[in-house]
Design a protein around this nucleic acid. Structure first.
Length: 970
RNA sequence: GCGCGAGUGGCGGAACAGGUAGACGCGCCAGAUUUAGGUUCUGGUGCCUUCGGGUGUGCGGGUUCGAGUCCCGCCUCGCGCACCA
C-alpha cells in the first residue's frame, strides 16, 4: 500500500461509479418527461430552453453469452451525445428495450425444455446489469420488451391496421404525390356504392356477389394478405424465411440450411406498394450514402418498357408480355425466354412431336415439346438456389415449340424456357437480344440462335461478345420507324412512342423489391390476430380481444426435415395446441358466435423491431399505440430539413439520432420505414420516416489466433514472443499460432467481456477508451494493452483536482492566467464542434491536451478545473460527477450548462508564420496576428536564409498573412 | 462483373476551406521514485544522415507558388449486390 491513498485506482473508480449509478437511479435523473399522458410533466417540459431530442440505439437481442466489449460501442456514443445535449438544455430521451422474441431462445428451449420466456428473462437480467454498470443515462421506465403481451398487443394491432388497409394508387397525398394506404372499409364502400367498378366484368353488382367472392376481391387488395406464392422454404430449419434472410449462397441466414423455392400459402406484406416512396424519401433523411445505396439497390427501380409479343398461330393465347430496359434494341430480339414457372407456358406448348427440322440441341433430348418442357420444369423446381448459383453462366433451357412475332420486324422468333429468367422479376419473360446482352449472347451461343447487332459497337470491341455500351443504333428500321443513327436514350424514347402508338407496349417501371414474406413456423414470436372461418376466409380479431396471447405448448420445436427434402411441408408448433387453435368467437360482424381456426404461424422477429421506437414514447398508454401529442412532440416533422437534403425538401420527422450496425441496412431499416409509412397514411403518426438521422457504427474487432490446423485457440491464453530481430510471433501452449482480427465472439474464441474491464479499470475508463479509439463509423481493432492510456488520463484529471495523499480538493480560487484561459476556450470551442459531429476521438485528444496544460501549472485554478470537468462529463460521467460534487456542487451536473467559448479569447495575439522557399519550410517567424501582407513580406525577405536563397533575385512571393510566406527565387 | 468506401510512423489514429504532415494515445528508449518487479512521474521518439541537410501520406502522371487534400490512370484491401432483362 502506497502513501497515495486517494489515487484514482480501479477500486476507487468502482466505488464512485456504483455510488453515482445508485443516485441517478434514485433521483430518476434520466427520466424524460412527456408533454401529456402517463409520463406527463408539462411544466418541466416547458422548462427546457434547448428544446428536445430523441436519441436511440438499435435495441439488443438478449443472447445467453452476455455482452462483449463490441456491443456497448454504439450505446456509449449515444449516451455521450445525449448527456452533451442535456447540458445544452434539451429534454433528451434516451432509452433501451429488448428485442426479446427470436430463434436462439427457441432453439435453446428445444434443447433444454426451459420455456424461452424464462431463458430470455434471465438473459435480459444479465444484460441489464452489464449495461447499468456502464453508466448509461437511460430512462428505464421505457425499457420495453417485445415479448410482453402489453407490448405485442400493439404489434398485433398494427398488423390489423395493415391487414385492414389497401393501397389506393390514385389517392392524393398531402405532399402532392399520388398513392397512399386507406382503410379497407372505404374500398368496400366504394364497391358497394358503385363508385368504383368491380374488377370482374360480368356485369354483376357488389351485392350480387357471394360473401366468398367479395372476400376474394377484398383480400386481393389488403396490404397484409395470405397467398399461395413461391417462398423460401428451409426444411432443415422447419420454417420459411424472407428473401432478405437468404444468403448469397442460397442458404438460410439462420442455421445455414439449404433454401428451396416452394409454392406455399403464407402471409405477405405488400411492401412493393411503397417502392417509389421508400426509394424517393431516402433523399429526405440523413443516412450514410452507403446505406441509402443499399436500400435503393434492394428496391432496384429501373425504367423501361413493357412490350407485347403475339404468339404465332395462336390468336386465342394472350400475347407474351416482357419487360425491357432496352426497348431501343427491339429489332435485335431474335428469340424469347420464359421463366420455367411462367403461367403462359402450358398454353404455348404444341401437342405432338417436334416439328420436322427442329434443331436437336433445342429439344433437351425429349421426343416432344411437352415432354421437354415438363422435364426441364421439373429439374428446375428441384434445384435449390445453391445449385442454380453453382451452374452460373452455363445457360440451360429448352424450346417450347412455339414462336412469337417480333412487333418491330414481324419475324417469327422461337420461344424458350430457361431458368436464367426469373419469375419474380419483371413479367417473368424476356425478349432476348444477344447483340446487346451478355446472357442472351451466351444462350444464343449454346443454342445456335441468330444475333443481330442493333447498336454500333465501339472500335476494337471483340467480335464474339455482346456490346452493352453506348453507340448509334443500326439495323433498326421498318416502314414506320427508323432508329438508325440515334443514340441509345433517343432511340429508347422513339421506340416507346412507336410501341404506344401501335398498341404494342408502354413505358413502365420495374422493381427488384418483392412483397415481404411475413409468417414463420416458429413458437417464439407474436401470434397473428387472425382466425379463419369454415370457408377458409381470414378475419381479423377485434381490437377488444387483443392481445392474442401466445399459448403454452408441450414442445417448442417446429417439425424439421432432412435439409435437402424440398418436398416437405411446414408444420408450425402452435398447430399442435388444438384447444387454442379451435375457438368459438363472436367477431361482432353480426354472424354471432361461430367456430374459427386460429392462424398458427407466428410473426417474424422483425415485427417487434419495426415500431418499438414508437412505443418508447408512450409505453404505458393503454388506449393508443402512442398518443398524437406525444408522437408529434418527439418525432414530428421539424421546420428545417436535414443537412444535405435537396432543395425544397420537407422534413419527414423521425428519431433525431439512431445508431446501429449496418447489417440491418435492408432488413430492419427497410421494414420499419414501410410500417411507419403505413401508419402515417392511416393517420396514426405525424412523421413520414422513423429515423431522420441514422449513423452506422463500425465494429470492434479483436485479435484471434489459429493453430496449424486452422482451429481457433483461446485468445486469452496466447503468449506474445518478440524475436531477436524485433519480429513478433505468437504461441499457445508452446505451439506457434497465427493472428488475425475478427468479430468478437465464441466462434473465434476471442471474447473480451466488459465485466473484466470494469474490474480492472472501471466503466469511465472503458467508455473513454472505446470513444477514443478512432472514428465511430470505422471498424477498429481492440487492444486491451492500450486502455491504460485512458486510465492515466483520468488519473491525471483526478490529481489536478484532488490531492492523492490527503484526498483534499487542491484547486485554488485564483483567476486563470491568460495563456491557460486561451487554451481553455480553444478547447471548449473545439470540443463543442467535435461533440456535435460525434467526433469523440478528437474531443478526447483536446481534453487530454487541456488537462496536460493544467498539470504543468503549479496551482490549478478552480474555474479551469470546473470547466474541464463539465466537458469531460458526457464521456466519463461518474468521475465528473464525483469531482463536481467535491468541488462543492450539490446538484448532479447532468443539467449543468456546457461551457461556452468566449470568441474574444479564440483570437490569438501572435501566431507562428512559416516561411517557405519553393514550397518547403525553411524558417519560422513569430508575428502579430493582424500583421499586414507588406510588413510580413518585408520581414520574411530579411531573414538570413531567405537572403541566401534569393541572391540571384526573386521570381515571386506568395503572402498569406499571418500564417505563411512562400518565396520563389529566380 | 456492378456499386460504395479506404490506403498516413512499429500500432490505433490527427490534419477546418489546397498552406507547419504525424495532434492524442499505445508501444519503444532514457532518466527519477522503488529493495526488486509492477505502478507512477519527467523527457525523447517518421525514416536516412557525413548533423549541413536529405526524404516522406499505396504506385505513376498532371494542375498549382504550394498537394495527404484537387484531376487522370493503375494497384491493394474492406463492405454490399450479383443471371434483375
Amino acid at each position: 500500500m502506497s502513501e497515495t491513498a486517494h489515487r484514482y485506482t480501479a477500486e476507487l473508480a468502482d466505488r464512485i461509479e456504483l455510488a453515482w449509478q445508485d443516485r441517478w437511479e434514485a433521483e430518476g435523473t434520466f427520466d424524460a418527461p412527456n408533454p401529456s399522458g402517463p409520463f406527463a410533466d408539462p411544466e418541466k417540459v416547458a422548462s427546457y430552453s434547448g428544446g428536445h431530442m430523441l436519441v436511440l440505439d438499435m435495441f439488443p437481442y438478449p443472447s445467453g453469452a452476455g455482452l462483449h466489449v463490441g456491443h456497448p460501442l454504439g450505446y456509449i456514443a449515444t449516451d455521450v451525445f445525449s448527456r452533451y445535449h442535456r447540458m445544452l438544455g434539451k429534454n433528451v430521451l434516451h432509452c433501451l428495450g429488448y428485442d426479446a422474441f427470436g430463434l436462439p431462445a427457441e432453439q435453446y428451449a428445444v434443447q433444454t425444455g426451459q420455456h424461452p420466456r424464462v431463458t430470455t428473462e434471465a438473459n435480459i437480467d444479465i444484460m441489464a446489469r452489464q449495461l447499468r454498470r456502464l453508466g448509461l443515462g437511460l430512462d428505464n421506465r421505457r425499457a420495453i420488451r417485445t415479448m410482453d403481451p402489453d407490448y405485442y398487443r400493439w404489434t398485433q394491432w398494427i398488423f390489423l391496421q395493415i391487414f385492414n388497409a389497401w393501397y389506393d394508387t390514385e389517392a392524393e397525398r398531402a405532399d402532392g404525390g399520388r398513392g397512399r394506404a386507406r382503410p379497407i372499409a372505404e374500398l368496400v364502400e366504394e364497391y358497394a356504392s358503385g363508385a368504383r367498378p368491380l374488377p370482374a366484368e360480368d356485369g354483376r353488382d357488389w351485392a350480387d356477389l357471394s360473401p366468398a367472392e367479395q372476400a376474394d376481391i377484398v383480400d386481393s387488395h389488403r396490404l397484409a394478405y395470405a397467398s399461395e406464392a413461391p417462398v423460401n422454404w428451409a426444411p432443415g430449419l422447419g420454417s420459411v424465411v424472407a428473401n432478405e434472410e437468404v444468403t448469397n449462397e442460397g442458404r438460410s441466414e439462420r442455421g445455414n440450411f439449404p433454401v428451396f423455392k416452394r409454392n406455399l400459402r403464407q402471409w405477405m406484406m405488400r411492401i412493393t406498394a411503397y417502392s417509389d416512396r421508400l426509394a424517393d424519401d431516402l433523399d429526405r433523411v440523413q443516412w450514410p450514402d452507403k446505406v441509402k445505396a443499399m436500400q435503393r439497390n434492394w428496391i432496384g427501380r429501373s425504367h423501361g418498357a413493357r412490350v407485347a409479343f403475339p404468339v404465332a398461330g395462336l390468336p386465342e393465347v394472350d400475347p407474351i408480355e416482357v419487360f425491357t430496359t432496352r426497348p431501343d434494341t427491339l429489332f435485335g430480339a431474335t428469340f424469347m425466354v420464359l421463366a420455367p414457372e411462367h403461367p403462359l407456358v402450358d398454353a404455348l406448348v404444341p401437342a405432338g412431336e417436334w416439328a420436322p427440322g427442329t434443331n436437336p440441341a433445342w429439344t433437351g433430348g425429349e421426343a416432344s415439346p411437352e415432354a421437354a418442357v415438363t422435364a426441364y420444369r421439373r429439374a428446375a423446381s428441384r434445384k435449390s438456389d445453391v445449385e442454380r448459383q453453382i451452374e452460373g453462366k452455363d445457360k440451360t433451357g429448352v424450346f417450347t415449340g412455339a414462336y412469337a412475332v417480333n412487333p418491330a420486324t414481324g419475324a417469327e422468333i422461337p420461344v424458350f424456357v430457361a431458368d436464367y429468367v426469373l419469375m419474380g422479376y419483371g413479367t417473368g419473360a424476356i425478349m432476348a437480344v444477344p447483340g446487346q446482352d451478355e446472357r442472351d449472347w451466351h444462350f444464343a451461343d449454346n443454342f445456335d440462335l441468330p444475333r443481330i447487332r442493333t447498336v454500333q459497337p465501339t472500335e476494337g470491341h471483340p467480335e464474339d461478345e455482346a456490346f452493352t455500351g453506348e453507340g448509334p443504333a443500326i439495323n433498326s428500321a421498318n416502314d414506320e420507324i427508323d432508329l438508325n443513327g440515334k443514340p441509345v436514350a433517343e432511340a429508347k424514347a422513339a421506340m416507346i412512342d412507336w410501341l404506344v402508338e401501335r398498341g404494342h407496349g408502354e413505358a413502365t417501371v420495374s422493381y427488384k423489391l418483392r412483397d415481404w414474406l411475413f409468417s414463420r413456423q416458429r413458437y417464439w414470436g407474436e401470434p397473428f390476430p387472425i382466425v379463419f372461418d369454415a370457408d377458409g376466409v381470414a378475419h381479423g380479431v377485434p381490437e377488444s380481444m387483443l392481445p392474442v396471447e401466445l399459448p403454452e405448448v408441450p414442445d417448442y420445436s417446429p417439425r424439421t426435415f432432412d435439409p435437402d427434402d424440398a418436398a416437405s411441408e411446414p408444420e408450425p408448433p402452435l398447430g399442435r395446441v388444438r384447444e387454442w387453435v379451435e375457438v368459438d368467437l363472436d367477431l361482432g360482424d353480426g354472424r354471432g358466435v361461430q367456430r374459427y381456426r386460429r392462424e398458427t404461424n407466428t410473426m417474424p422477429n422483425w415485427a417487434g423491431s419495426c415500431w418499438y421506437y414508437l412505443r418508447y414514447l408512450d409505453p404505458e398508454n393503454r388506449e393508443e399505440l402512442v398518443s398524437a401529442a406525444t408522437e408529434e412532440y418527439w418525432i414530428g416533422p421539424r421546420e428545417t430539413p436535414v443537412a444535405g437534403a435537396p432543395k425544397g425538401t420537407v422534413d419527414p420527422g423521425g428519431v433525431d439520432l439512431y445508431i446501429g450496425g449496418v447489417e440491418h441496412a435492408v432488413l430492419h431499416l427497410l421494414y420499419a420505414r414501410f410500417w411507419h409509412k403505413v401508419l402515417f397514411d392511416l393517420g396514426h403518426v405525424s412523421s413520414e420516416e422513423p429515423f431522420r438521422t441514422y449513423f452506422s457504427q463500425g465494429y470492434i474487432q479483436a485479435p484471434a489466433y489459429r493453430d496449424d490446423r486452422g482451429q481457433p485457440v483461446e485468445a486469452s491464453e496466447v503468449e506474445e514472443v518478440v524475436g531477436d530481430s524485433g519480429a513478433v510471433s505468437f504461441t499457445w501452449q508452446g505451439q506457434p499460432v497465427t493472428r488475425e482480427f475478427g468479430k468478437i465472439g465464441k466462434s473465434l474464441k476471442n471474447m473480451v467481456s466488459p465485466d473484466d474491464m470494469y474490474a480492472a479499470y472501471g466503466a469511465d475508463t472503458l467508455r473513454l477508451y472505446e470513444m477514443g479509439m478512432g472514428p465511430l463509423d470505422q471498424s477498429k481493432p481492440w487492444d486491451t494493452r492500450a486502455i491504460v492510456g485512458s486510465q492515466r488520463f483520468l488519473q491525471r484529471l483526478w490529481r489536478n483536482v484532488v490531492d492523492e495523499e490527503s484526498g483534499e480538493v487542491r484547486v485554488v480560487d485564483e483567476p486563470v492566467d491568460d495563456a491557460t484561459l486561451r487554451v481553455l476556450h480553444r478547447t471548449i470551442d473545439a470540443v463543442r464542434r467535435d461533440y456535435d459531429e460525434l467526433g469523440f476521438n478528437t474531443a478526447i485528444a483536446r481534453l487530454i491536451e487541456l488537462n496536460n496544460a493544467l498539470t504543468k501549472l503549479e496551482r490549478v485554478p478552480r474555474d479551469a478545473a470546473e470547466q474541464l470537468v463539465l466537458m469531460v462529463a458526457p464521456l466519463a460521467p461518474h468521475i465528473a460527477e464525483e469531482l463536481w460534487s467535491r468541488l462543492g456542487h450539490a446538484e448532479s451536473l447532468t443539467h449543468a450548462d456546457f461551457p461556452v467559448a468566449d470568441p474574444a479569447l479564440l483570437v490569438e495575439d501572435t501566431v507562428t508564420c512559416v516561411v517557405q522557399i519553393r514550397g518547403k519550410v525553411r524558417d519560422r517567424l513569430e508575428v502579430a496576428s493582424d500583421i499586414t501582407e507588406d510588413e510580413l513580406r518585408e520581414k520574411a525577405l530579411a531573414l538570413p536564409k531567405v537572403v541566401d536563397a534569393t541572391a540571384g533575385g526573386v521570381r515571386t512571393v506568395i503572402v498569406r498573412a499571418p500564417r505563411l510566406v512562400n518565396v520563389v527565387p529566380m
